[in-house]
């Protein structure tokens, strides 16, 4: 009970932090409004999917260092498939890329299970493999995205009957995030499989003894990370209109946001909401620093410092709670 409360407390605390940051943003930049919020969400898009994938694997007690490479590979694949293709073919391409991501993740998981090599080493090796594969698909940025896909992330939701005052605050990108994450995460979390993922992360021996197929669950967890990475890759293609074979800065950011989001790196604890809020916190800090006209390079220092301080604070709280 108390641990459940503490877990929720962390997410609630993050949400309050985010709200406070919004207020702060409004103070330093009085005309920050719907437009600013829209661009914040669009900037956060790929990070959200990267962190979602990382979260699933970390909860299962692993870690996926190849997440940014998988995003690059799926992004170039999507851009290459849609290059010069008709608009309806875009749907086929999206489906194919999502399947590809799922398979890439499954390969990671199978290798972890079969090779008996620690997760961090396997996915480190696969980082090179997927990155190399992305370079083979396309050795320079290029390709194209279907128009309707690009429309998905641009602008705000327009529903007739609702005043634009409200819809202005609902960028399409936000809807995309909520729908994609909810469609995958909620059924997963509620299913037996989701429970097994938490179980193997918390103690794979205990899970095994209670009849959980540890190997299969682990493979599935990695496969879902691949699926989220594919969504991240698609989002990259959508918002830039092309695919780039060089992985972006999503690996470090995903690990950071997972930890900030209250997911224990030892596995078995946490949810998806915390890490997603953490992504927004990190992005908003970045734009705040820009508004304050801070040297963009100093922003990196501040980001790193926030990460270190918050993580130390979390560790300290955990120690306090353990001691009495």
């Amino acid at each position: 009970m108390s641990s459940a409360l503490r877990r929720q407390a962390w997410v609630i605390g993050l949400a309050i932090l985010l709200a406070a940051l919004f207020v702060f943003t409004r103070i330093i930049q009085p005309d920050y409004g719907a437009d600013g919020f829209g661009s914040l969400v669009r900037a956060a898009l790929p990070f959200v999917f990267a962190v979602a994938g990382q979260t699933v694997v970390v909860i299962a007690g692993g870690i996926d260092l190849s997440i940014a490479s998988m995003m690059a590979l799926t992004s170039v694949t999507a851009a290459t498939l849609m290059d010069g293709a008709s608009e309806p073919f875009g749907i086929v391409a999206v489906a194919a890329v999502l399947l590809l991501g799922f398979l890439l993740g499954a390969v990671n998981g199978i290798l972890v299970v079969v090779s008996r090599v620690p997760d961090i080493v396997v996915t480190l090796a696969m980082l090179f493999v997927w990155q190399g594969a992305a370079l083979l698909v396309r050795d320079s940025p290029g390709g194209a995205a279907s128009e309707w896909l690009k429309e998905l992330v641009v602008g705000n939701l327009a529903v007739p009957g609702i005043p634009t005052g409200i819809t202005d605050w609902v960028p399409k990108a936000l809807i995309l995030i909520v729908v994609c994450l909810a469609v995958v995460w909620i059924p997963l979390r509620r299913s037996r499989l989701g429970l097994s993922i938490y179980a193997i992360g918390s103690s794979s021996l205990a899970a095994f003894r209670s009849g959980v197929n540890v190997s299969r669950t682990k493979i599935v967890a990695y496969a879902f990370a691949g699926l989220f990475a594919a969504m991240g890759g698609l989002v990259l293609t959508m918002s830039t209109g092309q695919g780039a074979p060089i992985p972006g800065p999503y690996l470090l950011a995903s690990v950071a946001a997972v930890v900030l989001g209250g997911v224990a790196l030892t596995g078995g604890k946490g949810g998806l909401l915390g890490p997603v809020i953490a992504v927004f916190v990190l992005r908003l800090v970045r734009s705040d620093l820009t508004f304050l006209a801070v040297d963009p390079n100093v922003t990196t220092i501040v980001e790193g410092a926030i990460m270190v301080v918050v993580v130390m604070l979390g560790a300290l709280l955990a120690m306090r709670n353990r001691q009495p």
Binding site: A256, I301, E303, G304, A305, M307, V308
Partner: peptide, 11 residues
């Protein structure tokens, strides 16, 4: 992992 990544970012 997290600690050294963080200090690396600051660096």
């Amino acid at each position: 992992l997290i600690m050294t990544l963080g200090t690396s970012l600051i660096g």
